[in-house]
Amino acid sequence: MDFPTFFQHLSNGISLGSLYALIAVGYTMVYGILRLINFAHGDIFMMAMYFAFFSITLFHLPWYIAIVVVILITSVLGMLIEAAAYRPLRDAPKTSVLISAIGVSFLLENLATYIFSGKPKSFPEFTYMTSTVQFGPVSVQRVSLLTPVVTLAALAILLYIINRTKLGMAMRAVSKDYETARVMGIKINRVIAATFAIGSGLAAIGAIMWGVKYIRIEPMMGVMPGLKCFIAAVIGGIGNPVGAVLGGFILGMGEVLLVAFISQLTGWRDAFAFVALILVLLIRPTGIMGEKTTEKV
């Protein structure tokens, strides 16, 4: 493989990785606070893409307004899901909440199929972003250059919120000890709602960039990225946003480069994440940056 081809693949890997990273952060935040795999997160990502599609094609919003609107609507969707499907089960066994999450995921997929039809749609073309920039022999799409920048900026803002604001402090308190935080007068439900809003908002940003880059939208498209991004969060160390971003990059790049180097494995591409997950769980279940926890006996 010559250098330009390698660089081409690398830039694809980085851009896919940063999209994974944006979604993985949502998983990791929810898991950190509720100890719940939010199975619906991938489908929230999918819905965001449809929101973007309709706000541009149907309502003809200019793109800068559309982005804000999509992020807001998706955040609201995240909060609604939390309030309807997870909040009533706050004191129920963990399994019930997990099943509820699976139910929501399934419902969103079926709802999308029903409302938007199962036929794939094409994301509105964004010529400026999809046009390429030349770096010597290598040409890279502008959107591919943009994604890692946006992801890192989003991570920086998120870390600021978590470490420097009152909301962030409340989030950390709730994730450390749910019961005590409640006793200390933290409004748990508000903190959790905010967590879902932020996570869903990040997924919306990811969705818009995904749509611009990969164009095709369909109701089941949240499933695979969703699973992979959860895996990314586990690889990075669940509960840790920096870890999630790291895991997202590792997974995205690994997936792209593996197929690039060994083309016979093209059909196995989706299996890569699962193999990675199982390896991580075996070797280091707490992930790269996760803290070790022991159960009290």
Binding site: L227, L281, P285
Partner: peptide, 26 residues
Amino acid sequence: PVLRLRGDYLAIATLGFSEIIRIAFT
């Protein structure tokens, strides 16, 4: 490998294996 995992980790790992089997058959 997976039965040492707890709760939701087991869920995601078994789901992963189910997908790996399907991808292998594909």
